[in-house]
């Protein structure tokens, strides 16, 4: 997993609530057996019409917007547990998803792939959304160590929460397998004692 400490980037707004993982990556693209290539089909049916023509009204296709931060509406990532959704967002180039609420399974999947699900207050989400809509060139700063998200050239910022263990994993690029394997003896002892 790639290490994550801080980033400064422009952001792409996606002011839709309840974005489910079927929209992030439709089921027909889940036939691959590796993790590559899902970025090409992220938000496929919102980005393109049935004939593969880009939908210019969709923010990811709008040349005004760019960057590795996605600002999305409430309850992002609900629905299916498919980790392909996280692979697709990472594959497209996102490093941070900002929303006022994340679905559980998506949140875990994102963290396991070095993609930061950053939860802000509904008020700050509105500020971010409005700022990017008005001034798409605005840069957003995300500092994981200090747990702060701020808007460049303003005094607007907010602190965010993250599980301390997950924070350490993100900063150092560790994953849970490393940790669990270090507990093997304890797990075996647990099994023996239950028998």
């Amino acid at each position: 997993m790639e290490k994550f400490t801080k980033i400064i980037s422009k952001a792409i707004p996606l002011a839709i609530e309840n974005i489910d993982t079927d929209q992030i990556i439709p089921a027909r693209f889940l036939k691959a057996t590796d993790k590559k290539g899902f970025g090409d089909n992220v938000f496929r049916d919102w980005r393109f019409d049935k004939n593969g023509i880009p939908n210019t009204a969709f923010s990811l296709n709008n040349p005004l917007y760019s960057g590795s931060i996605l600002i999305a509406g409430d309850n992002f990532g609900c629905g299916s547990s498919r980790e392909h959704a996280a692979w697709a967002l990472v594959g497209y180039g996102f490093k941070v998803i900002v929303s006022s609420f994340f679905a559980d399974i998506f949140k875990g999947n994102a963290l396991n792939n070095g993609l930061l699900p950053l939860q802000v207050s509904p008020g700050f989400l509105t500020v971010l959304m409005d700022t990017i809509h008005k001034k798409p060139e605005t840069e957003i700063l995300v500092n994981l160590e200090k747990q702060i998200i701020s808007i460049a050239d303003t005094n607007l910022f907010e602190n965010f929460e993250i599980d301390p263990y997950k924070k350490t994993c993100m900063i150092n690029g560790y994953d849970d397998i490393d940790y669990l394997l270090s507990k093997k003896e304890m797990i075996e002892a647990f099994e023996t004692q239950r028998k």
Binding site: S81, R82, E83, N109, N112, D175, K184
Partner: peptide, 22 residues
């Protein structure tokens, strides 16, 4: 409960998961 593929790998490797109690 449902899990992501990284967690599928964790259970393969250790028969355990790292979780916060809901």
């Amino acid at each position: 409960f449902g899990i992501g593929t990284s967690q599928v790998a964790q259970v393969f490797a250790s028969q355990c998961l790292l979780l916060k109690k809901p």
